[in-house]
Design a protein around this nucleic acid. Structure first.
Lengths: 229, 229
DNA sequence: ATTACCTAGTGCATACATTCACGAACTCCG
DNA sequence: CGGAGTTCGTGAATGTATGCACTAGGTAAT
């Protein structure tokens, strides 16, 4: 078979690929050229078998008895995640959060660049945020199509999030990352991922409370004991 | 059995309780007093059976043939999550993100209050951020113990995240929320949750790429027909 | 070549999560 | 009061994720 009949990557594994990727990039910077699943697992704080299984969804890129070649594996994960290109992204909402996101260098470093920031508030329009000028929310569609944007970020207050989502969908955007603390509804076929600070804090609150009740909190995923040597 | 032999709530269900909670609060504001699992499910964009099962971990708080009393259920979820009290929180890192977090009203509204923001950068110290003055990272331990803080937020660059984590642990903090794009290691017993923007974007990138390959992306928690080209 | 030793890849058992489907329990109405 | 209608709670089936333990396939040294 010339081209791999690519299996869909399970959601759980998919969520770990970016972590491996980051570690691999760090390893390259440290001039490490080979890495074993055992080492990767240690660095990612997961089980080694899990690392191997996750990577096996991509293809057979390791060498038995040796490990994985860092550069090659880096490339393969990037390719699989679609990070060979830099994706244009629009941010809806130029408040605290929108600005912090636009200025977040991690975005640019990892395969994305902000091509637009919009807001409904006239007083924000024209401000320079993360290298782009804030434009009016009504211009979203125009920005999205002229820059071929397919990923949008909602950084509005909760009460405007659904409206923002609707605009993004109308603008033809297929993937949305929602920072607003509310559930947004989108048509089938549009991908949504949410980042919900309050939710995460509330989960921590639960664990803190159970800890104090003498019930041992169970850590998220698997926790490695002890600090790095 | 004197007290309720409280079952531990499964991680997956736990992650949805804050969503239900938010919806219930909204319902109260709209003067809705009763709600069915069907309605809750609709609002939370999940399956009704899931709602019922999730809520059943808390106890038997619904009434067959009727539904759930909004106020009562709200109270029970809050109690379970430990949100009867307002948790003091410290933020490590007063950069863009740290400031945005400190100013984020959603924190205060949902059972948390920022009692300290620290940074290593002398130029940031003394600045007023989200109502508190930035103090030096060395004072973390003092702040944490004087204010009985048990939840810490890491909002530093990746390269300082482990150091921040170590400080938080030394300060006796048991739950950490990590915004830095790196894996931090902590002693067993310390809870860590991560919020990783780049990771989420990269997952969206994957879905966008597969969409363009004609392979239908599968949404989170949603099914669709898989097609291969 | 042969042997000793690694380490990737994976089948399988187990654990966890989701969803269905149905009985139990409640309300409403005639 | 009794039957129709509603909705919770949950057992059981299915789907997904994890981790062990083994095999296959590679290196290295003699």
């Amino acid at each position: 078979m010339s081209d791999t009949p690519r299996r869909r990557i399970p959601e759980a594994a998919l969520g770990r690929l970016p972590i491996y990727l980051r570690i691999l990039v760090d390893l390259t910077n440290d001039d490490v050229t080979q890495v074993s699943s055992e080492q990767l697992a240690e660095l990612a704080a997961v089980n080694a078998a899990k690392v191997r299984k996750d990577l096996s969804y991509l293809g057979t890129y390791g060498t038995r008895g040796v490990g994985y070649e860092v550069k090659f594996l880096t490339y393969q994960i990037q390719r699989e995640l679609g990070l060979n290109q830099s994706w244009p992204v629009v941010i809806v909402g130029a408040g605290n959060l929108g600005q912090a996101l636009a200025n977040f260098t991690g975005i640019a470093e990892r395969g994305f660049h902000v091509v637009g920031v919009v807001d409904k508030d006239e007083s924000k329009i024209g401000q320079l945020v993360g290298g782009v000028r804030v434009r009016h929310a009504d211009e979203l569609q125009q920005i999205a199509s002229s820059k071929a944007v397919s990923i949008g970020i909602i950084a509005t207050p909760a009460q405007h999030a659904q409206e923002a989502a609707d605009s993004l969908v109308r603008a033809g955007i297929g993937s949305i990352m929602n920072f607003a603390p509310t559930v947004i509804s989108v048509p089938r076929g549009v991908n949504v991922r949410k980042v919900d600070l309050a939710l995460e804090l509330q989960i921590l609150s639960y664990y803190e409370q159970t800890r104090n009740n003498g019930l041992r909190a169970v850590e998220t995923g698997d926790s490695s004991d002890s600090v790095s040597a």
